[in-house]
């Protein structure tokens, strides 16, 4: 069952010209594309903010407007009121749907817990850092326990360690049976979050990546070391073809990445000092770069693969019934 279905979607005055997309219920779906490709417009359309009912948009199997509170949305454009406290803002948002009873408190506390904001619950939002404000915005989207959360560039403008915490929070959300859609231009290595990815370019989905594709995405890791003894050098070079060894650096690509643990064991065995281990590419950023050549990318990750898989699984279910 897919929660969002977009069929030949065209949105006037946006780059979106023909988007067909099916997002399975309970999945974490990534929409990846360069700036200005219409990712945000797609999120607005999914949230039902396009005004006219757009032909080809269906949420939870219905073309009607989404149920109040069933969609949460987080974007960097949201500016929170500085004078309110986190808890006050969440309570206010929650009581739009419910009366001020025990459930409101429970829901607010839950949203605070999910976003790891316990120590900032009573803080005025104006005193919080950008990262904490971003988490408050996420809690605001989660407070009514929506069936789907839409996130537009959730890690943009955050420091690297803050990005990791945000990804960790989103990973925890993914396990709570919520449909999560994240639009990103690939500037943060968050590919591990996604069950599926669609690449947007020229107003269309040009490629779709399954979970297996995401796992198999090309990664490059560099290990910086002290001088590597010849014996260790030969040992490491013999492990597999995806390893390039120089006097002080080891670069792992493709298959070589899978041998990281083995290489570390060899280095430790020969007492080679390791300065750092760092990723040298972001697979999502690579995807956005490759989207400049849609034919190549479409050949590698064909569109409709996921759609067909979904159709096949639906057909199988129907036959079984």
């Amino acid at each position: 069952m897919h929660y969002v279905s977009l069929t030949n979607l065209r949105i006037a005055r946006t780059p979106i010209t023909d988007v067909t997309l099916h997002i399975p219920e309970g999945s974490c779906f990534g929409i990846v594309g360069a700036s200005g490709t219409g990712k945000s417009a797609l999120l607005n359309a999914m949230a039902g903010l396009s005004g006219r009912a757009l032909p080809g948009v269906s949420l939870a199997g219905s073309t009607a407007a989404p149920r109040p509170g069933s969609i949460g949305i987080v974007t960097p454009r949201i500016i929170l009121p500085a004078h309110m406290t986190t808890l006050g803002l969440l309570t206010r948002q929650r009581t739009l749907l419910l009366n001020g009873d025990g459930q409101v408190d429970d829901d607010c506390q839950r949203a605070i817990r999910w976003c790891a904001l316990e120590q900032y619950a009573q803080s005025a939002i104006g005193t919080l850092s950008l990262f904490n404000k971003r988490r408050v915005a996420l809690a605001l989207a989660l407070v009514s326990k929506p069936a789907m959360v839409l996130l537009d560039e959730p890690t943009i403008d955050l420091a690297a360690h803050e990005q990791q915490v945000m990804i960790d929070i989103l990973e925890n959300l993914r396990d709570r049976n919520m449909t999560i859609v994240i639009a990103t231009r690939g500037n943060t290595p968050m590919e591990s979050l996604f069950d599926q990815i669609a690449v947007l370019s020229g107003g269309k989905i040009i490629a779709e990546l399954s979970a297996q594709h995401i796992r198999d995405m090309q990664r490059t890791i560099m290990i910086r070391t002290d001088e590597i003894p010849t014996a260790a050098y030969e040992h490491i070079a013999a492990i597999n073809n995806g390893i390039i060894v120089t006097r002080r650096n080891i670069v792992l690509t493709g298959e070589g990445v899978r041998s990281l643990a083995q290489i570390l064991q060899v280095l430790l065995h020969y007492s080679v000092h390791i300065f750092c281990i760092e990723p040298r590419n972001h697979p999502l950023a690579d995807l956005v770069m490759q989207a400049r050549y849609p034919v190549v990318l479409a050949h590698r990750y064909p569109v409709r693969l996921l759609t067909n898989t979904i159709r096949e699984s639906n057909a199988t279910e129907e036959v079984a019934t």
Partner: peptide
Amino acid sequence: EQPINISRLLHLP
């Protein structure tokens, strides 16, 4: 028209 307030619209019928 501010996004924070439009997000409240998602909570209204």
